[in-house]
């Protein structure tokens, strides 16, 4: 199976938020289907764990040169997903299509994924972690992800990685030509060593990366230090065991030699 990719194009987006509504509706239906919640309750309660695509509104500049930007906050399905690596119960898996998915059955809600994610994506509710699953089951059955399915302007589109990148670069090139502003496909190339490249990319004017809160160096420095400490700790522990055994053997030999010398001197 080829790797799947999603793309959000900021230019044709009309801020109708149908993608977010579609995402939440899809996830409520999933919870109903899996008997986690009844129909009435899922219709009445806010249930933040069902919103895997959320708006992050921010205002920039000072009046009259101010503007408001609504960024999209979602899982990027990182190439080197730190959440997947850190999960102690292997509840986070990568589907054949590349989607990073939380299996709620083994999840113990330890928040390790929350701490490892540099995009602040997973949320813990009722002792389980939730985040976008890329509608992997829809995709594996030939459907589009819910957010893509409901987008009226094709600002969200998906497909195989090759198809999406081809279309994304084509659009970015067109926008650059028409507007005179350089447009890039954020996440198509390696973002940094911590997350690698992304399977949810964004077409955006390069100058608007900050406005759309797209981090050019997403990381959790302390988690990288933690990983280093683990490796260094393993080497250190092995060195201590070898050193201790070596010292004990040396010490016993030296002791015997010393006792023999003392006996000879006294004898």
């Amino acid at each position: 199976m080829s790797v799947n990719m999603k793309c959000y194009d900021t230019t044709p987006c009309i801020r109708c938020f149908a993608c977010m509504v579609g995402c939440s509706a899809e996830n409520r239906l999933r919870l109903q289907r899996d008997d986690y919640i009844g129909v009435e309750k899922s219709d009445q309660e806010k249930m933040p764990q069902t919103y895997h695509l959320t708006p992050k509104r921010k205002e920039f500049g000072t009046f009259p040169d101010s503007r408001q930007v609504t960024a999209f906050h979602h899982c990027n399905h990182c190439e080197k997903a730190p959440c997947l690596d850190i999960c102690p119960v292997d509840a986070i898996i990568r589907r054949p299509g590349g989607e990073v998915v939380i299996d709620h059955e083994p999840c113990i809600g330890c928040s390790s994924c929350v701490d490892a994610c540099p995009f602040d994506v997973p949320v813990i509710t009722d002792g389980k972690a939730y985040k976008c699953h890329g509608c992997y089951d829809r995709v594996e059955n030939g459907l589009k992800p819910s957010c893509v399915n409901v987008c009226p302007t094709e600002a969200m589109f998906s497909g195989t990685k090759e198809e999406v990148l081809k279309e994304a670069y084509k659009r970015a090139s067109l926008y650059t030509k028409v507007t005179g502003k350089e447009h890039i496909v954020y996440g198509a190339d390696k973002v940094n060593d911590y997350v690698g490249s992304l399977l949810w990319v964004t077409i955006i004017p390069k100058e608007d990366l900050d406005a759309y809160q797209l981090d050019t160096d997403p990381e959790r420095t302390v988690m990288e230090a933690r990983n280093f400490a683990k490796s260094a700790g393993a080497v250190g522990a092995a060195a201590i065991v070898v050193g201790s055994v070596g010292h004990l053997i040396y010490w016993i030999g030296k002791r015997k030699e010393k006792v023999q010398n003392e006996e000879q001197n006294h004898g």
């Binding site: 701490d115 302390v222 988690m223 400490a229 700790g233």
Partner: peptide
């Protein structure tokens, strides 16, 4: 996140 890192590093 810092607390988790510090907990692990100091434990090592």
């Amino acid at each position: 996140s810092y607390a988790r890192g510090a907990h692990a590093i100091s434990f090592v």
